[in-house]
Nucleic acid binder design. Structure first.
Lengths: 233, 233
DNA sequence: CGGAGACAAAAAGTCAGACTTATTCATCAC
DNA sequence: GTGATGAATAAGTCTGACTTTTTGTCTCCG
């Protein structure tokens, strides 16, 4: 993703991060830097760098004379893309997908409304292209091709909103969509109604109809929520 | 906030983080670890730890033979509480507050709707307490006391939503509210209409009326947005 | 019996220096 | 012009010694 495994400390994080976020060390657990360094066969300097990163994500807290203690889940920086990825790869992937889908349902409609006001001509064109790509791959088990356009569509909407905080959720939404396609559901073709909604959103944004863009996007996200409810009511 | 200045590398971050987020080193600038270590009068080990943290926030990228390069703003982890704090303390505080207020306007109504469904009796009581506290301090230039209850109110709503992603925005919302009171506007007493809305939200949540809680909260956030528009149209 | 203060141990924090490795850039041959 | 060679550079890594803070314990005295 963001060039993983860069350097030794990166390799340590690739293992230790998922372990912690998966809850293998319950909150309050104490780790010792020296032991970890031994375990991963790296020097203490490298291990310290890894701990610093975990600390900046609020996953752990390092205190003298006591060690590196795992913080409670409620304090983690759950918006850190790295943390999101670790958790999506872990045990409670389902719960995580639900949380993120609810987040989508709050953000994306508002973002679409803003996009209708602020989108450039280029962005409108790109949006239409994405929607067309979704239509073109909506039948015949071309899920991967569909997914690519779906992810691009939502990313463009978030970017076009002109709000930096929304724009930075593009990666998260992409992960959620990818997760849905690859692991959970979606054995068949996507819901035709959803495809239509995407086309209509593209049109509403192009027409500058903020209210309509927002409402249509809300329908899309409601659909995504219902999809999860059907799977795990 | 989260125990700043912890350790030497923390002190380095307290200076270097704000500098970078303030744009003092434009994207693409290269910093040398050795020079930085000299500048801050710390060992390279300590400087490396600081760089690792900045790297985990996607503020910089460290590459061999070239140095530590500042990444473009669009790649920063803008949801990292530390980054948010640094930016709020910096130059484009106004722009930042706008972004975050738009984010609030998307999140909080949905969170309030969920809170109406999921809030415990304790949370309902706490919410009412907060609303009462706001009322009690809404006149007579008791802005600080009002702020405390306002922050608590929104935090409880976000917590009560039962969604982890929403709950973790409590700090951010608190920063926004504090920023508004302390720096920008609010020389007089708060808007009486806003106070009333908070009371009504507390009541709607207690009554389990999700639609009403959502709509009322939307009015609150719309008010917050308008407040900014008046200041910087 | 209990609290205050001194002491010792433990673990993170810090530093300095030597070495390794990847990357870039410039030079040179073809 | 293109491709290979090589030297320079800055990050990456490791080691070992030392410092500092914190905590638990063990007194000693009330």
């Amino acid at each position: 993703m963001t060039t993983p495994g860069r350097g030794l400390h990166g390799h340590v994080l690739d293992t230790l991060g998922p372990e912690i976020t998966a809850g293998e060390y319950p909150p309050g657990s104490v780790l010792r830097t020296d032991e970890l360094a031994q375990r991963f066969d790296v020097s203490r300097s490298v291990m310290r760098e890894a701990v610093r990163v975990l600390e900046s994500m609020h996953l752990v807290e390092s205190r003298r004379r006591v060690g590196v203690t795992v913080r409670p889940t409620s304090e983690w920086n759950v918006y850190d893309p790295q943390v999101i990825r670790w958790r999506l790869a872990g045990k409670d992937r389902a719960r995580q997908l639900r949380s993120l889908t609810v987040l989508r349902s709050a953000i994306e409609p508002v973002a679409a409304g803003l996009a209708a006001r602020h989108a450039t001509a280029d962005q409108c064109a790109e949006l239409t292209q994405c929607a067309l790509g979704m239509v073109a791959n909506s039948r015949g088990h071309k899920l991967e091709e569909y997914l690519v356009h779906d992810m691009a569509f939502h990313r463009v909407v978030l970017d076009a909103s002109g709000n930096e905080m929304f724009a930075r959720l593009g990666d998260v939404v992409a992960e959620v969509l990818a997760g849905r396609t690859h692991h959970d559901v979606m054995f068949e073709d996507p819901d035709p109604a959803a495809v239509t909604l995407h086309v209509q959103v593209a049109e509403a944004v192009r027409a500058g109809d903020a209210v309509r863009a927002e409402e249509l996007t809300r329908e899309i996200t409601v659909g995504a929520l219902q999809e999860l409810d059907i799977l795990a009511p």
